[in-house]
């Protein structure tokens, strides 16, 4: 943990002004890339993630195929300029390898892999700008891209990173809260309440865990509606694949 002590609560409120149970603004767009079989673009607070999926397709090399189901190949990566403080290195690192695995295992809980034995489905999540909660935003992007591709899934799923700041349990940590708070607790779940992804670091009492899970389950409704809205938006008119950013200058 950092030596610098940062006050995350002011007069009992979050510095950002958000309520303890308030999510940042989330925008979801389905269908943003041309080559990929399915794609999505997510803006969550200042997080920006783009996702592309391919498949099901033949496995190469063939000996890696699973005779009873499709294998998921997930890759989470960050561009070198996604952090304010520094220039990152290109290529995978230990953190991105772990997150790729954790997200893959979460998606394996919903993708109907037994419908496509001896195939693979590839999911590429690229973080263009990071502001805490990138794995959760990437997971959301992956679900949206699977919907865009028409790859069958059991149920839609979303995630929220809860945490603890200034002794209070909150949802959707921003960067300072993630860096200087007392706990980080990302969870992803289906509509029926099956938990697909769960990680935690920091210090939480059992009561706090229960409180956090309660908030996560409750607030996931907000994200589920946003996902439905994004699908409705895709079909509200002619389907056009384009990638558009907020707060930018267009030419």
């Amino acid at each position: 943990m950092d030596e610098k002590k940062v006050e995350l609560l002011k007069d009992g409120k979050r510095i950002s002004g958000r309520a303890f149970d308030e999510l940042r603004e989330v925008k979801i767009k389905l269908g943003v890339l041309d080559e990929a079989d399915g794609s999505s673009y997510i803006e969550w607070g200042n997080n920006k993630v783009i996702v592309g999926v391919y498949g099901p397709k033949e496995v190469i090399p063939r000996h890696m195929e699973n005779p009873s189901k499709a294998i998921l190949k997930c890759n989470y990566s960050m561009v070198t300029f996604c952090s304010k403080e520094e220039h990152g290195k290109m290529g995978p690192n230990r953190r991105s390898v772990e997150l790729s695995k954790v997200i893959r295992e979460a998606l394996e809980g919903i993708v109907e892999t037994n419908l496509f034995p001896r195939t693979q489905i590839e999911i590429y999540m690229v973080v263009l700008e990071a502001d805490a909660g990138t794995r959760i935003a990437s997971f959301l992007g992956a679900v949206a891209a699977l919907l865009d591709a028409g790859i069958p899934i059991k149920d839609i799923a979303v995630g929220i990173a809860a945490g603890k700041v200034g002794g209070k349990v909150v949802v959707d940590l921003d960067k300072d809260e993630d860096n200087f708070g007392e706990a980080d607790f990302p969870v992803a779940l289906t509509r029926t309440g099956d938990i697909l992804l769960l990680q935690m670091d920091g210090k939480l009492t059992k009561e706090e865990v229960e409180e956090a899970l309660g908030l996560i389950f409750e607030k996931s409704e907000v994200l589920l509606s946003k996902l439905r809205e994004a699908v409705e938006e895709k079909y509200s008119k002619e389907v056009v694949k384009e990638l558009k950013f907020s707060n930018k200058i267009i030419k």
């Binding site: 399915g38 591709a149 028409g150 790859i151 069958p152 059991k154 149920d155 079909y235």
Partner: peptide, 22 residues
């Protein structure tokens, strides 16, 4: 019956909007 892909219901029929060719 549950949907596994995005679709629409129109005039009493369910029509998938995207799906993988099986």
């Amino acid at each position: 019956k549950y949907a596994m892909v995005v679709g629409m219901v129109r005039e009493g029929k369910f029509i998938p909007l995207e799906h993988v060719y099986v």
